[in-house]
Simulated assay, not measured.
Amino acid sequence: MKKVGLWVLLLVSLVGCSTKMGYYFLDWVIEWKLEEYVSLTSGQQAQFDSALNQFLIWHRAEELPLYAKQLSQFSLEFEQASLTPAVWAAQVEQLKQHWLRTFEFIKPFIVPMISSFTDEQVKQVIAQLRVDEKALNRKYLGKDRQALVEMADKRINKRIKKWIGKLTSKQKQAIHEYNLGRSSNLDMWLEYRHEWIRLLSLALKNRHNQAALSHSLTVLMTQPDRLKSDVYKTTLDNNTEQFGTLLVRLNLLATISQKKHFQAKLDALIVDLNELSEAD
Rank of each mutant, 00 (worst) to 15 (best):
L213F: 05
A152N: 06
D230S: 10
R60N: 06
S201D: 15
F74R: 12
W28N: 11
W32P: 00
A203S: 11
L95Y: 12
F78K: 05
R145L: 06
Q263A: 13
L236P: 01
L199Q: 15
E93T: 13
V92L: 10
V15H: 15
Q173K: 15
L11Q: 13
L246D: 03
Y67D: 06
Q97F: 01
V15E: 14
I164N: 03
L220G: 08
A68R: 02
R155C: 01
V29R: 15
S184I: 04
Q54R: 14
L186P: 02
L141I: 11
T222H: 00
K139C: 04
K161L: 07
E31Y: 11
P108L: 06
A46C: 00
L200C: 05
L252A: 12
S72Y: 02
F78E: 03
T222M: 12
K172Y: 01
L52M: 13
V15W: 14
T84G: 06
T255E: 09
L202N: 07
Q223F: 04
K161W: 00
N238V: 12
G43C: 03
K233D: 04
L220E: 05
A264Y: 06
G22N: 02
L52V: 08
P108C: 05
W99C: 04
W189F: 08
L64D: 04
Q45Y: 09
F25P: 00
L56Y: 08
I106G: 00
R193C: 01
Y140H: 11
G244R: 08
A46G: 04
D237S: 11
Q70N: 10
T41G: 12
L40N: 08
S169W: 02
E275H: 11
L10E: 15
N157L: 00
E275A: 02
R249E: 09
T19S: 13
E150K: 09
R155A: 12
Q121V: 03
E195N: 14
L6D: 12
T218Q: 09
A90K: 11
R159F: 01
